[in-house]
Amino acid sequence: MDWQAWHDEYDDPGSRLARRLRVVQQRIRLALDACPPGPLRLVSLCAGQGRDLLEVLDGHPRRDDVLARLVELDPGNTAKAEEKAGAAGLVQVEVITADAALTDHYQGMVPADIVLACGVFGNIAGEDVERTIATFAQLCRAGGTVVWTRHRRPPDLVPQICRWFEERGFHLEWLSEPDAGYGVGAHRFTGTPQPLVTGERMFTFVGYDLLGNG
């Protein structure tokens, strides 16, 4: 899979990915608006080229309050994210080329006010989705928000994803309609943050093409 070429669909305003991106960006804006005054932290798993976050921060009133870390394995995508962040003057955004599944890469940035897991759940096995959600209690502060995506094609895992979040102290803030053509959710953490356990792997990124997730 060419993950840089995969992003090209975002440039077609009518594409499924472009429509999903606009919804994700709106949820990020709302999450930023809801954050308390002062500095805040954000982490993004499998951040790609960072379009979801960087296009929101550029021009958002809270842009200078946000200390962010984008974790992405593909060096071509991280190069594009760094270029976009630099062009927008977002000097407080750190882009690292690394395996986003490893908890080590979030040291010093968690618990975060916002956790982004967009483009993750559709590319990993169901048991890894559950494991990752369980780990979010280590990544997210009390009252923080997780914004995530997952397709709605059969077998539709989204209802189970919402149950896994609920079982681990996350309240559903918003969920896209089943017939939207994509799945976007936002959960607020009402539990108690757990200490980050380093050296742990949350998931193995398989890819939707190999999983048959389209």
Rank of each mutant, 00 (worst) to 15 (best):
F136Y: 14
D58M: 03
T135H: 15
D12G: 02
V43I: 14
W6Q: 11
N77F: 00
C162R: 15
R150W: 09
G143N: 11
H151I: 06
R63W: 08
K80R: 11
P61C: 00
Y182M: 01
G108Q: 08
R131S: 14
R69T: 09
D104E: 06
C118N: 15
N77P: 00
E82P: 04
W148A: 15
G181N: 08
R29C: 11
E83V: 00
P195E: 05
T145I: 13
V110G: 07
I161M: 15
H105Q: 12
E130K: 11
G119K: 02
P39I: 06
M1Y: 12
L42N: 09
F189L: 02
I161S: 06
V93P: 07
D179T: 10
A117M: 10
L70T: 03
P61R: 07
D11E: 15
R188C: 08
R19T: 10
G143C: 06
D209S: 12
H171M: 12
V146N: 09
I96T: 08
D12K: 14
A137C: 11
R201F: 01
L42K: 03
F189D: 08
W3D: 01
T204L: 04
R152K: 13
D128A: 11
M109I: 00
R188P: 02
Q4K: 15
V147D: 07
D52P: 13
G199Q: 04
G119V: 11
